[in-house]
Simulated scan of single mutants.
Amino acid sequence: MIEYPRLTADLVVLTIRDDRLKVLLVVRGRQPFKGRLALPGGFLEHGESLEETAARELFEETGLDADRLHLKPTGIYSDPERDPRSRVITVSYLAIAPNLEMPSPGDEILSTDWYEVDDDLYMNLAFDHARILEDALEQARALLEQTSIGTTFCKEPFTISELRRVYEIIMDIQWNQGNFQNKVLGIEGFLEYSGEKGSKGPGRPGKLYRAGPVRKLNGLMKRPKTAGTLVEG
């Protein structure tokens, strides 16, 4: 008898909270992997597209509304052993956005929260969700290289130091302050000076900026291959 695979959608939702990169996770309330951390997601229902499945599961499991997020498909995972219940193929979706609210657990979810992305977290995820998270995070970093999405994490007007911290958190690097400033100011249309100065900490007030009209950076913010590297230029 032919076993036809079932389809699911899983979501990797990333944000910055408390100066840390965090991912939205749920604690599963049923088997398999009951009590384990997992990405939000679930099975395709009749009459749905996978994008609609992703949006529905996000709301049902965490209470977050996908309408304010841009869900980007990031991968297809089809290992025959990835789900102990049956043959399941999943499509993963990535969303990265600032200032996302606290989630609330839905039915069959014990709890849901924002978890800091670190090595220990990868060891505790159900199914193959560690691989899905790792792949999506690489795509999030590529978006910072290729687009101006980093500015959306800063409340306008913002300092260049605030923007630099966004890149450091998501890319897992340290960026030389002066070289970062020269780089972002050297990209035409990336930032626009607001005409104001300000400071959110000790030290001299710095110039305040807004996001410019340019959306594609074409790799001009490329990071090194080794995490934690001090970027000099």
Rank of each mutant, 00 (worst) to 15 (best):
K183L: 14
D113G: 03
A136S: 04
S104Q: 03
D118M: 02
D79K: 02
V214G: 08
P84V: 00
T226H: 05
T147E: 08
E108M: 13
G29N: 00
T90I: 06
A97H: 15
K216Q: 15
D10A: 04
R28F: 07
L24A: 05
Q139F: 14
E188T: 12
V166R: 08
V166Y: 05
R36L: 04
G106Y: 07
L39D: 05
E61N: 04
L21Y: 15
R30G: 11
E138W: 13
E48N: 08
Y77P: 05
N182L: 04
D10C: 12
M221H: 05
R6D: 10
V214F: 00
F158T: 02
N218K: 11
R17V: 07
A136D: 02
G63T: 00
K200C: 10
A126D: 01
E108C: 05
F153C: 09
G189L: 12
G186V: 10
E52K: 10
T74R: 01
I76C: 04
T90K: 14
F153D: 05
A54C: 01
L11E: 02
S78Q: 11
E48I: 09
V12W: 02
V23M: 06
G63F: 00
K207A: 11
T151N: 05
V231L: 11
E52L: 07
G29Y: 01
K22R: 14
Y193K: 10
P213S: 02
L39R: 09
R87S: 11
L37N: 06
T152Y: 11
P80C: 04
D113H: 11
G206D: 11
Q181N: 07
G233A: 08
P98K: 01
P213G: 03
R87H: 14
V231S: 03
M102A: 15
R28H: 09
E156V: 02
E162Q: 15
P80M: 06
L50V: 03
E138A: 08
V12M: 06
A97T: 07
A211C: 10
V184S: 10
T112V: 13
A38C: 10
S104H: 03
E61C: 02
D118V: 01
L64Y: 03
S49K: 00
